[in-house]
Deep mutational scan, measured.
Amino acid sequence: VTLFVALYDYEAITEDDLSFHKGEKFQILNSSEGDWWEARSLTTGETGYIPSNYVAPVD
């Protein structure tokens, strides 16, 4: 499982989006939707859509 880490803070715009803070880690559930990925936060356990350009793979 490839994990991703937030590079910036993000505040949800719609109820389907997931708010997060810089440094938060995610498991990507679906990355086939283009620039918005469905993800689960490993910090909160919540799922929602995140902007793919706000995250990077964890080394």
Results as ranks from 00 to 15, higher is better:
Val55Cys: 05
Asn53Thr: 11
Gln27Trp: 13
Tyr49Ile: 09
Leu7Lys: 05
Leu29Pro: 04
Ala56Ile: 12
Ser31Trp: 12
Val58Lys: 04
Ala12Trp: 02
Phe20Met: 09
Val5Tyr: 13
Ser32Trp: 10
Val55Met: 09
Glu11Pro: 04
Asn53His: 12
Val58Ser: 07
Pro51Arg: 08
His21Thr: 13
Asp35Met: 13
Thr2His: 12
Pro51Gly: 04
His21Ile: 13
Ser19Val: 02
Asn30Cys: 09
Trp37Met: 06
Ile28Phe: 03
His21Gly: 07
Leu18Ser: 01
Val5Ile: 13
Glu33Cys: 12
Thr47Trp: 09
Leu7Ile: 10
Ser52Cys: 09
Asp35Gln: 11
Ser31Asp: 13
Ile50Asp: 00
Leu3Ser: 06
Asp16Thr: 15
Asp16Ser: 14
Val5His: 05
Leu29Ser: 05
Phe20Thr: 03
Ala56Leu: 08
Lys25Gly: 04
Thr44Ser: 09
Phe26Asn: 00
Asp17Ser: 15
Asp35Thr: 11
Ser41Thr: 03
Gly34Glu: 12
Glu46Gln: 14
Glu11Gln: 12
Gly23Tyr: 05
Gln27Asp: 08
Glu38His: 14
Val1Ile: 13
Tyr10Ser: 02
Lys25Ala: 07
Tyr10Gln: 02
Ala12Gln: 05
Ala39Asn: 00
His21Glu: 08
Val55Ser: 01
Thr43Ala: 10
Asn30Ala: 08
Glu15Gly: 13
Thr43Val: 11
Thr47Ile: 14
Gly48Arg: 02
Thr2Lys: 12
Gln27Glu: 15
Asp9Val: 02
Ala12His: 06
Ala56Tyr: 08
Gly23Met: 03
Tyr10Pro: 00
Ser41Gly: 03
Gly45Arg: 04
Glu11Asp: 11
Tyr10Ile: 01
Asp17His: 15
Val58Tyr: 13
Asp35Trp: 11
Glu38Asp: 04
Val58Cys: 10
Leu7Ala: 03
Ile50Val: 09
Ile50Gly: 00
Gly45Pro: 00
Asp9Cys: 08
Asn30Ile: 06
Val1Ala: 13
Glu15Ser: 13
Ala12Phe: 02
Glu24Asp: 15
Tyr54Ile: 06
Phe4Ala: 10
Asp9Pro: 06
His21Arg: 14
Ser41Ile: 06
Tyr54Ala: 13
Phe4Val: 13
Arg40Gly: 02
Pro57Ser: 07
Tyr54Gly: 06
Thr14Phe: 15
Ala39Asp: 00
Asp59Leu: 11
Arg40His: 07
Ile28Asp: 00
Asp9Met: 04
Tyr54Phe: 11
Leu42Arg: 03
Leu7Arg: 03
Ser52Asn: 06
Tyr49Phe: 12
Pro51Tyr: 07
Tyr54His: 09
Ile50Met: 02
Glu24Cys: 06
Pro51Val: 02
Asp17Trp: 15
Thr43Cys: 12
Ile28Leu: 06
Ala12Thr: 04
Val1Gln: 14
Asn30Ser: 11
Asn53Glu: 09
Ala39Trp: 01
Gly34Val: 14
Ser32Pro: 10
Glu24Gly: 02
Gly34Asp: 13
Leu3Ile: 15
Lys25Ile: 15
Asp17Cys: 14
Gly48Thr: 01
Leu3Asn: 06
Phe4Gly: 05
Ile13Thr: 14
Gly23Pro: 00
Leu18Pro: 02
Gly48Phe: 03
Asp9Tyr: 04
Ala12Val: 02
Phe20Trp: 01
Phe20Gln: 00
Ser19Thr: 09
Ser31Lys: 12
Thr2Cys: 14
Gly34Ile: 11
Ser19Phe: 03
Phe4Tyr: 15
Asp9Thr: 06
Glu15Leu: 11
Tyr8Phe: 12
Ser41Trp: 01
Ala12Asn: 05
Glu46Phe: 11
Pro57Gln: 08
Thr43Ser: 13
Leu7Glu: 04
Asp16His: 15
Ser31Ala: 13
Ser32Leu: 11
Trp36Tyr: 11
Thr47His: 08
Val5Phe: 09
Gly45Lys: 05
Val58Pro: 04
Glu15Val: 11
Asn53Leu: 09
Ser19Gln: 04
Thr14Lys: 14
Ser41Asp: 03
Val55Tyr: 01
Gly23Phe: 04
Pro57Trp: 06
Lys22Thr: 08
Gly23Asn: 05
Ala6His: 00
Gly45Val: 01
Thr43Arg: 13
Asn30Pro: 04
Val5Arg: 04
Ala56Gln: 10
Lys25Ser: 06
Thr47Ser: 09
Glu38Cys: 13
Val58Glu: 10
Glu11Thr: 13
Gly45Met: 08
Gln27Ser: 08
Tyr49Trp: 14
Thr43Trp: 11
Lys22Gly: 04
Ala56Lys: 10
Ala12Met: 03
Asp16Leu: 15
Tyr54Leu: 13
Gly45Asp: 06
Asp35Arg: 09
Val58Ala: 10
Ser32Met: 13
Gly34Trp: 11
Ile28Gly: 01
Gly34Met: 12
Asn53Met: 10
Leu18Ala: 01
Ile50Cys: 01
Phe4Trp: 15
Tyr10Met: 03
Leu3Cys: 09
Arg40Met: 12
Tyr8Leu: 09
Gly48Met: 03
Ser31Tyr: 13
Leu3Gly: 04
Arg40Pro: 00
Phe20His: 01
Tyr8Cys: 13
Ser32Asp: 11
Glu15Met: 11
Phe26Asp: 00
Gly23Glu: 04
Leu42Asp: 04
Gly45Trp: 07
Leu3Met: 10
Glu38Val: 15
Val1Cys: 15
Ser41Ala: 07
Glu15Trp: 08
Leu7Thr: 04
Phe26Tyr: 01
Pro57His: 06
Gly34Cys: 11
Glu33Tyr: 12
Ser32Glu: 11
Glu24Arg: 01
Trp36Ala: 05
Ala56Pro: 01
Tyr8Pro: 00
Gln27Ile: 15
Gly34Thr: 14
Glu38Tyr: 15
Ser19Leu: 02
Tyr10Leu: 03
Ile13Ala: 12
Ile13Gly: 11
Leu3Lys: 05
Val1Glu: 15
Leu7Met: 08
Thr43Asp: 10
Lys22Asp: 02
Val5Leu: 06
Ser41Gln: 05
Ser19Asp: 05
Thr44Arg: 04
Tyr8Met: 10
Phe4Cys: 09
Tyr10Trp: 11
Lys25Gln: 12
Phe20Ala: 02
Tyr8Val: 07
Ser41Asn: 14
Ser31His: 11
Val58Asn: 06
Val1Lys: 12
Trp36Pro: 05
Thr44Lys: 03
Lys25His: 13
Pro57Glu: 08
Lys22Phe: 05
Leu7Gly: 02
Ile28Glu: 01
Pro57Met: 09
Val55His: 01
Leu29Ala: 05
